[in-house]
Design a protein around this nucleic acid. Sequence first.
RNA 1: CGGGGCGUGGCGCAGCCUGGUAGCGCAUCUGCUUUGGGAGCAGAGGGUCGGAGGUUCGAAUCCUCUCGCCCCGACCA
Length: 597
Amino acid sequence: MQRWSKLFIPTLREAPADAEVASHRFLVRSGYIRQLGAGIYSYLFLGQRSLNKIIGIVREEMDRIGQEFYLPALLPKEPWEQSGRWTGMGDNMFRLKDRKGADLCLGMTHEEIMTTIARGELRSYKQLPQIWYQIQSKFRDEPRPKSGLLRVRQFTMKDSYSFDIDKAGLDKSFDLHDAVYRRIFTRCGLKFVAVEADSGAMGGSQSQEFMVYTDAGEDLIASCPVCSYAANLEKATSLLEPVAEMEPTGDGKPELVSTPGCGAISDVAAFFKISPASDIKCVAYMALKRRTVGKPDTWHGVAAFLRGDHQVNETKLLGTVGAAELRTMQAEELERYFNGPAGFLGPVGLNPDAKPLEEGLTVVVDKSLDDRRNLVAGANKLDYHLRNVTPGRDFSWTLLAEIRSVNEGEGCPKDGCKGKLVVGKAVEVGHIFKLGYKYSESMGARVLDPNGKEVTPIMGSYGIGIERILTAAVEQSNDKNGFWLPASIAPFTVVVTITNMTDALLRETGEKLAAELEAAGLDVLLDDRDERAGVKFKDADLVGIPYRINVGKKAAEGKVELVTRATSTSVDVALSDVLALVKERVEEDALLLTVGE
RNA sequence: CGGGGCGUGGCGCAGCCUGGUAGCGCAUCUGCUUUGGGAGCAGAGGGUCGGAGGUUCGAAUCCUCUCGCCCCGACCA
């Protein structure tokens, strides 16, 4: 049993002024964490205790399907050069040199290291499948650490890697992780949703994120309230309402119209008395093409055309053209590629490259424009637009693809579903995806198949942000007085509050009760501080412990008070019954957090 | 990297514009009282005003440089 009077639990009445999100404020106020630098935090007693419980759950569940390793965080350059990520990771990687001048980095993820081990040791299909995992610190030089523990430069990640002989094996490893992740987040009391995600620069195919809805989150999720569809906005798609077709004017061919000062979509729509959906918007980018070893990276012009009322989704555009980075074009680049100024750019008269990111201009047209006719577009000439512009007839493109972001209220893309999508903010707590052959191929991992033929194992990669589980739990369960955690991840299950330490009866009753609870297997914190009752109540409400037993005035009648933090409700209980009641409550809670075998 | 803001005792802040004894609340320590929702009274300790340089008789305050932190954007397996 732990005694509050002997512990270091530095609670604060006020939060640091720069703490914005609830989890940051409360984790600091409750003495869970202290900041050391931008995106660098120390975990104090309560914080570490809670994180240890989370890690315990993760480990227990992961042991069902995988084997735990412990890998170095200090990594030599070579494996990263072999995979192409020494340059590919860019500035997000912490790099350093040793005394001999050799390049090292701090691990931000461990695909290369696991693959190095696999390459050196795995020889036969008989050794597959393998699932290897680790729970360790990761380092990322984030451009902007923020929101307390939500985006930091050092954090704890459970990451696992699967090696399979074929795609069917990978599917199985993926599904095993999916199931185990659902168990983990459920046991941690998170209200999560699994969404389709972009696989990003990691390469690979199927990709799924586990998200917890909260306004503190940095991701946007589109989901359907009717069916099960949910996707990260980087990936989400939707059904659009048909737009009324416009009648051609004159001979129906593109016609130059003077539109002085109409540089914005809203101006153009007003000028032509049309919906912005019938205006073609152009966003011009320079895209970075990453070359393989030895060759310099190169920038290429990309013109993105879409409906005037839509927004470019840069993640989709990156994936579509196969670029590593995007930036918007400068005025002189607009002149070079379009021979026209911003605000009046259009697709007619351009000469699109046959393949993306070649010498000329890559033209990408959003699918929503494909079947439209008689639209309005910029004329690549100051103060002029064209009308009667029909895609395919009047201009061509390098690629036709979905490059727009979906908006709330658009139709659910699932067949036959009539739902309207809603968009909400969420924080990512886990991510599983199928890597494919990217690392095993580039790093030369090979095994012999049953026919004695050399084959490349196929890989998957699966991550969980340990601190983010805590953060998300705090975000989803807090009020003005503090937060509460489920017993499974709370630093203590119950705090026994002796309301007046000067009263010998209360002291003895509290001590005895705490010892009993402890003996029954509960995680007990005894608040034996020589403080006024009010102080103890305020602290108890703050620090995330789900149950509190007040030992106070009614102790003389053999009664104590059981307070449930989540509901702020209390009941008087006979001293002899309180142990059974607390156990019952905790078991009921735990039942809600179980998943079928 | 672009834009904005802030660095004054452990936390939250005032003072800076208009240069002249470094202040307030909370916290801490001691004593007495108090004891069911962050107590009262009395006393005490604690600050190179982020750092460096400059202007000045004199700088927390004005100027220059620099470091750090936060927010918005960009970015983000």
